[in-house]
């Protein structure tokens, strides 16, 4: 499956990839995980000043900052972090579609975080657990970041419980988010080239964890498909959802308006 959907610019020299090294498996992996972290940090950054309580403003910013830090480390393994973040086209981003989904209400943000953080913690855990002689730079980042990720997962879990088992309104909103985002979860388990991960195990463990949190939160686990029926592919192939173009436009606009400037 992987490699089927090359980006249009995938094999050219691009600004972020002066040495053409992005095709190396390690780079593909760093790009996929780095883009996940970058795009989710960007989304969480939109919350600043809008959170339901000041304490939560601080908490969401903490998560965003952790993710942004991970993104910078991962992208720097591939090339210049800013060129990669600001000068790539939409099709060249390798993040899963889940992280680009709009914030919506607080429930949507929390459930997105739950789905993603459970995944990221398991993924980083597996990467960090490799034998030292096999450790790649990505594995080194994973080992460092897995604790942050566990904290993010805990935050999402705590809130899923409170929203699911809080009031009627919060339950309704949480259930809606659980259902609406479910179709973006299948993509999480698509093997990423360059990552030594047992994907079947990852999927099984993810499903058990998420199911257990949802059930504890009195939320119904969706039964529908975990991915949209569309042959074009998903985020790991550079195919994204409508809101992503606007996210990039906003993120990249200033940087692109001043070519060659440094900040």
């Amino acid at each position: 499956m992987s490699g089927t959907y090359e980006t249009p610019g995938g094999t050219h020299e691009t600004p972020g990839d002066p040495h053409g090294g992005r095709d190396r498996p390690g780079h593909r992996a760093a790009l996929a995980l780095g883009d996940d972290a970058l795009v989710l940090a960007q989304r969480l950054g939109e919350w600043a000043g809008h959170a339901p309580e000041l304490e939560e403003d601080v908490a969401l910013a903490n998560i965003a900052l952790d993710l942004l830090g991970q993104a910078r480390t991962l992208l720097s393994l591939v090339g210049d972090e800013d060129k990669l973040a600001y000068l790539r086209e939409e099709r060249e981003f390798r993040n899963v579609q889940l992280v680009e989904q709009p914030n919506g209400d607080f429930a949507q943000t929390i459930i997105r975080q739950l789905y993603f953080s459970v995944y990221q913690e398991l993924l980083y855990g597996q990467l960090a657990g490799c034998r030292p002689e096999d450790a790649t730079p990505v594995a080194a980042l994973a080992a460092k970041a897995v604790k942050e990720t566990a904290y993010h997962r805990d935050h999402a879990e705590q809130w899923t419980l409170r929203l699911g088992d809080g009031t009627e309104e919060s339950h309704r909103r949480a259930q809606h988010a659980v259902d609406a985002l479910w179709r973006y979860t299948g993509e999480l388990f698509q093997p990423v080239e360059g990552l030594d991960v047992d994907w079947d195990n990852l999927r099984a463990t993810w499903t058990t964890s998420v199911r257990s949190v949802l059930e504890q939160a009195t939320l119904r686990v969706p039964e529908g498909p975990q991915s949209a029926v569309w042959a074009a592919g998903g985020g790991r192939q550079g195919v994204h959802t409508e809101p992503f173009g606007r996210l990039l436009a906003e993120m990249q606009h200033l940087h692109r308006s001043h070519p060659e400037a440094s900040w």
Partner: peptide, 20 residues
């Protein structure tokens, strides 16, 4: 001090605020 609905979140909020 912090505001929080319960002990678990109070601990999280305190961690995020006072040990940034």
């Amino acid at each position: 001090s912090v505001h929080a609905p319960d002990a678990a979140l109070a601990l999280r909020n305190a961690r995020d605020l006072y040990t940034r």
